[in-house]
């Protein structure tokens, strides 16, 4: 049997799965941000006409999947797997979204790294010829996450400048065995890193080592240099974590400063409320679906590396003073030849 692995942790696809379509749906604050015009749908309030934040999140995720399917001109019977995840307990937003579709469902949790974890798995399913089309989606809702991870939304408290703002956003991509669009060339699945950061208001610091390790491994495995990429997008280290991640890579002799951007920083205009930047499963998912996919489709880049980073803590683990385990997965995407 021929294996498609390279180095310590990278899967390389000989027949590259195609990112056929992508769609992003966001809340009002994200819609007013610098990328506001790029999203497929912007809600004007955070409840989206539902009675709870949780229902709103599920609706947003469903909306993103619907739009992505419509763009790819597919109906649900043509999709073999639906892979999705979110931030809420037992990934309920994804489960409630999935019950609306007649598609086999795989629920995953990778915190903010969910979308790249899903794209990695989806690409493997297609490359392994277990699927023709796979839908990958993830979402987060600021208010739903806030009350689960921190305080009730109406509780008045100050956020430290290292804090990150959970995005109200959802992104969905359709991966296919054939078709037009950018292609997934390789996926590097990261190892969980934990350098003892306990402060949930400082996730950038916690996630940066995972980011650096995965980028380093990817470049090693592929035998490449940062210059081989037009863009390295992390999601979501924030301003603080980006600086730390770049420095950690510089210590390993890799300089990405020129080509690195962070989805959490791209999504919002700077403000004390947003703090270090955006975060949440929907943040990098919506930035990729709303902005990067379109730019790849239009061949503005030859090759980009999307490195979504996830802080895998729970409210309970944080209250018990445990440190935050983090993971990052890299997906290398090339525009169509």
């Amino acid at each position: 049997m021929e294996f498609h692995r390279r180095g310590t942790s990278t899967c390389v696809f000989k027949e590259m799965p195609v990112v056929v379509s992508a769609a992003a749906v966001v809340g009002p604050r994200e819609g007013k941000g610098p990328l506001g015009d790029l999203f497929d749908m912007v809600y004007s309030n955070t409840l989206f006409g539902e009675s709870s934040w949780e229902k709103a999140e599920s609706k947003m995720l469903r909306q993103a999947v619907d739009l992505a399917l419509a763009k790819a001109k597919l109906d649900e019977t043509q999709v073999d797997f639906l892979i999705a995840g979110d931030l809420l307990n037992q990934i309920i937003s994804s489960a409630y979204m999935a019950r609306e579709y007649d598609i086999p469902f795989l629920g995953i949790y990778g915190a903010c790294a969910t979308i790249s974890e899903g794209m990695g798995l989806g690409s493997m399913l297609i490359a392994g010829r277990f699927a023709r089309q796979v839908v990958v989606a993830s979402s987060s809702h600021h208010d739903a996450a806030e009350r689960q991870f921190r305080y009730p939304t109406e509780f008045g408290h100050q956020r430290p400048p290292t804090g990150q703002w959970t995005a109200t956003a959802a992104g969905a991509v359709v991966l296919g065995a054939k078709g037009k669009g950018p292609r997934v060339e390789a996926v590097t699945i990261g190892r969980v890193q934990d350098l003892g950061v306990v402060e949930p208001n400082d996730m950038g610091s916690a996630m940066a080592p995972g980011f650096a390790d995965t980028v380093w491994r990817h470049l090693q495995d592929m035998g490449r240099k940062p210059e081989d990429y037009d863009l390295v997008v992390s999601g979501d280290l924030g301003r603080v974590g980006s600086l730390i991640g770049r420095q950690l890579l510089r210590d390993k002799g890799i300089v990405i400063d020129e080509i690195h951007q962070d989805a959490g920083v791209m999504l919002y205009d700077p403000s004390p409320e947003v703090g270090s930047g955006g975060s949440g499963c929907g943040c990098v998912a919506s930035v990729f679906s709303g902005k990067l996919w379109k730019e790849l489709y239009n061949k503005q880049y030859e090759r980009i590396l999307v490195v979504a980073t996830g802080a895998l803590h729970s409210p309970t683990s944080c209250q018990q003073g445990e440190s935050i385990p983090c993971v990052a997965h890299a997906v290398s995407i090339v525009s169509e030849e």
Binding site: P161, T162, Q193, D194, L195, G196, V197, D202, S205, P209, R239, V240, L243, I244, Q247, S276, S323
Partner: peptide
């Protein structure tokens, strides 16, 4: 990371924290 690595990382972070 072990305790020493955690402490080293924590010291390293000092320069970056706003």
């Amino acid at each position: 990371a072990n305790i020493r690595e955690q402490e080293a990382y924590s010291a390293f972070l000092e320069d970056f924290r706003p």
